[in-house]
Design a protein around this nucleic acid. Structure first.
Lengths: 152, 152
DNA sequence: TTCTAAATCGTAATGATTCTGTTTCATTGT
DNA sequence: ACAATGAAACAGAATCATTACGATTTAGAA
């Protein structure tokens, strides 16, 4: 998903253009990895110091609804990223340190034959977690997700 | 995982036996599906009216650490269940209405050849969501997870 | 039975997310 | 360009799940 495509979607659906929305989309695009609402707020506040969480959440909610962003939970925290542009259905490897992702083209559901007996499938999640080369090389590993959110 | 096995693990690791712990384990075992901490508190309070959330979370944390319970997030809420007893690694289909699970023996990672270039895998998640036959037959669908936690 | 550390209680703190009332602003029609 | 309209944003409070803390109780060992 490019910035332009995202803005186009908003316009097509009749949502208003605002500088905040465009900026938020640009930040998501630039980050290109899973980040928290707080991360986004802090980046937004460099430009709009008065910006409130409300605006972040409201827009993330809208963007998610419109398929502009993806959401997942890592180490007990919700994280968001610009939905990636690969048109085909696919999955991701996610770096637990920096949140960057890498595509996995195969989908395990393809290996199953439709709905199993007595269960109607509506959705699924396949995510592989670990460390990306950049984080390994940089010796990172204790910073970002390290204080592993309490297990419960 | 049976109640006895769970209690044995606690004893082996030197944790104290308490009626509350045993009761919590028995409830988890009886439920045999993903439930919220609140669900557990309410069931526990039928027996121990004074029981606090602290006790629920502290024990769930401990149990999770010891591999007695599994945790996942459905519709924005953390849910817990007694870890199932299948000894081999496997995954689950999860009913979005009642939280019951069904095993999937295959693991998509088996289809991959070790770590991909430049990514060190530490963990993964594969879950299939939908509706179980019992919930379909009972015409459920609007109750349990229906007020879909806001998308964001 | 006594002692000690662990477990629990009671309650407060935290932190993320959501909501409400008011104000500002983008868009549309004049 | 200007005013009207409704959406978006603001400010701050409310809510909810989760975690933390000091005091008390209890399990298990001596």
């Amino acid at each position: 998903m490019t910035v332009e495509e995202a803005l186009q979607i908003l316009q097509d659906k009749g949502y208003k253009y605002t500088g905040r929305r465009e900026t938020l989309i640009r930040i998501l695009d630039r980050e290109d990895r899973y980040v928290t609402a707080k991360d986004l707020l802090e980046e937004m506040q460099e430009i709009y110091p008065e910006l409130s969480f409300d605006t972040i959440y409201r827009n993330l909610g809208l963007f998610h609804e419109l398929g502009i962003v993806s959401m997942t939970e890592l180490a007990g925290e919700r994280r968001y990223r610009m939905r990636c542009n690969l048109p085909e259905h696919h999955h991701h490897m996610i770096c637990l340190i920096c949140g960057k992702t890498r595509e996995i083209k195969a989908c395990p559901l393809d290996a199953m034959w439709g709905d199993p007996e007595g269960f109607q499938i509506t959705d699924h999640k396949f995510e592989v977690y670990g460390y990306c080369q950049a984080c390994i090389d940089a010796g990172r590993g204790e910073e970002v997700f390290s204080e592993q959110a309490p297990v419960y």
